[in-house]
């Protein structure tokens, strides 16, 4: 299961939360590897530890025990500041709620991650424009989120995820807030990106969406079931 050319590797990862004095084991000895260029979906009902796994893959959190490696970086031992840097360089987030900045143009929204890694200002605009062109929004650079449909907003968010050329694109229920037509459009974009060699991790509770990936990881009670 653990390949040699893996981008991301989780080894015996556990995460324990303390809630109201009780210890809750959200992840229980999870091991997995994601290879370069893979399109993987993670599926599970709510309470399965899906979100916790996503936070650890997205370098938003570190495990209580176990080892997480992202392209030779041992993420599990990183400080908050180091995690911020690795998120900026290696992870492209796509959220269910889009999370675009209001009253801010598509171009500026897409360029947001570049602002945090010291990219030269002349490059920022160029790269953000290229990323928006990739998701078919080259004509709407100056539109604000409230002038865009839900599907278009999610495409801006995908452009924002692409702009830093990350190792992994991590999408959390990307179609959850969209009508079925827009949902299909967004999934098409993910498939296209996969064909271009992107590594994509899709977190969802929807079997249909999950099945469109190359490989599905099923999670239940903090453990991988298949």
């Amino acid at each position: 299961m653990i390949g040699n050319n893996s981008v991301l590797k989780l080894e015996d990862v556990s995460k324990i939360y303390k809630m109201d004095g009780l210890f809750v084991k959200a992840l229980d000895n999870v091991s997995l590897a994601i290879k370069e260029g893979e399109f993987v979906s993670i599926i599970g009902p709510s309470g399965s530890g899906k979100s916790t796994l996503m936070h650890i893959i997205g370098c938003l959190d570190v495990p209580t025990s176990g080892k997480v490696t992202l392209e030779h970086h041992e993420v599990s031992k990183m400080t908050e500041r180091e995690l911020a840097h690795i998120r900026n360089k290696k992870i492209g987030f796509v959220f269910q709620q889009f999370n675009l900045l209001p009253r801010t143009s598509a171009l500026e929204n897409a360029s947001l991650p570049l602002v945090y890694n010291g990219t030269a200002e002349s490059d920022v605009q160029k790269k953000a424009k290229e990323a928006l062109e990739k998701v078919g929004l080259g004509e709407r650079l100056d539109h604000h989120p409230n002038q865009l449909s839900g599907g278009q907003q999610q495409r801006v968010a995908i452009a924002r995820a692409l702009v830093t050329d990350p190792a992994i694109i991590l999408a959390d229920e990307p179609t959850g807030n969209l009508d079925s037509k827009s949902g299909v459009e967004v999934m098409e974009i993910f498939k296209k990106l996969h064909q271009q060699g992107r590594t994509i991790v899709l977190v969802t509770h929807d079997q249909n969406t999950a099945s469109q990936a190359q490989r599905t990881i099923k999670l239940k009670d903090g453990k991988i079931v298949s």
Partner: peptide, 11 residues
């Protein structure tokens, strides 16, 4: 939260 997810450090 978004800015932090996208790589803004606490500083």
């Amino acid at each position: 939260g978004l800015r932090k997810a996208l790589g803004a450090t606490p500083e």
